[in-house]
Design a protein around this nucleic acid. Structure first.
Lengths: 194, 194
DNA sequence: CTAAAACGTTGACTTACATCAACGTTTTTT
DNA sequence: AAAAAACGTTGATGTAAGTCAACGTTTTAG
């Protein structure tokens, strides 16, 4: 179970993990299973965990006054799910995260993170790499959100994360792209004609 | 000149800079002045510098086929201007950055960054803090971009960065918010009525 | 000092996308 | 196996914001 996390880390850092690193990870991360539709976090919670997705799929979203879900991130295997700002700063999260499929996570709680692994160099290194990549991707998504047509947004997602289309239904993809399911449906029907 | 940078760093890291840290910074950063409308970087360049804004104001934007500017970031005093992805990875930047006012920057080039300061702990710490904050802010901006009305976007910006309204004309603010200058103008006229 | 840009506003018109609603199909639940 | 929920599509209609254009004001440049 911990193997996928170990490999995830080894793929990203300079020096491979040692046996003792790995046994420390096994100690502080524990397995959590979520059934489809179960929440990992809910709006208003302070996010006290970081979660690595071993298996399954989740979505991160807000809910507006009218009850409409607005999806910000989708997570599948080898992604980290959670609200990093809430986790790091301790502010209540505005997001919900729930499992879209039955899901297995490796969870670490905040106190273990801070006391036991937060200061290890491989964790800092990983954390930095992931945060930096996250910010590069968000900059691109913001730019796309502000400049592309619905059709271009779809095309871009098909190029960057084609796996999402295998894992999530269209109304979820649509929300992630900031459009309605009807618009996405029409665009796809249109694209097929060409 | 270096003082503002020193203070910027001291405000963000745990242990204050030593005299030798400061003299190292003075050595690797040099002052660059940009006249209004001058470019700091242009689309297609590999961004080989990081720039701290001592005085002035800049904008970061793309230009589409029709020549329309699309502003992604605005920089004023105490911000870092540049394309971090291009700087770090060495890919050509898609952005232009130019001075909107006469501007003074403290510049460090990539080789000095890597060889002389990149591995210092205060630089890693600063870099991490700024990158993390950037990613938190981008997440919020993405969410706003996808969920708020033009009027709500304006209101939010007035709350988060009121100083922008003193430094940049409305058509620049409008582009930063992902709307046209006409829309921004009408929204403001409307808001006044209330 | 004068000309030229840059800026902001307003009106008329257009458009991309949202909303609302109905319906058929597939998947899940019991 | 039946019922319910989730999903995807299509049509009719609405609307927020974009486009185009004109014009007055302010700022900048020669």
């Amino acid at each position: 179970m911990i193997d996928k996390l170990v490999q995830h880390i080894n793929d990203r850092i300079d020096n491979k993990l040692t046996e003792s690193d790995i046994s420390l990870l096994s100690e502080v991360f524990h397995l959590k299973k979520l059934r489809k539709h179960q929440y990992l976090i809910q709006s208003g919670d302070v996010c006290k965990i970081a979660a690595f997705v071993v298996k399954g799929a989740l979505k991160k979203y807000t809910v507006d006054e009218t009850g409409k879900e607005n999806i910000l991130e989708l997570f599948i295997e080898n992604w980290w799910a959670g609200d990093k700002e809430s986790f790091m700063i301790g502010t209540p999260t505005p997001y919900y995260i729930d499992a879209y499929e039955d899901t297995e996570l490796l969870i670490i709680n905040k106190s273990d993170f801070i006391e036991k692994i937060g200061k290890l160099s491989f964790i800092s290194e990983l954390n930095y790499i992931l945060t930096e990549r996250q910010s590069f991707q968000l900059m691109k998504r913001l730019h796309s959100s502000q400049t592309l047509t619905a059709e271009q947004k779809l095309e871009q997602l098909q190029n960057t994360y084609p796996e999402f289309f295998q894992r999530f239904p269209q109304h979820i993809i649509a929300s992630y792209l900031g459009m309605t399911k009807e618009t996405l449906s029409r665009i796809r029907a249109n694209a097929l004609k060409k």
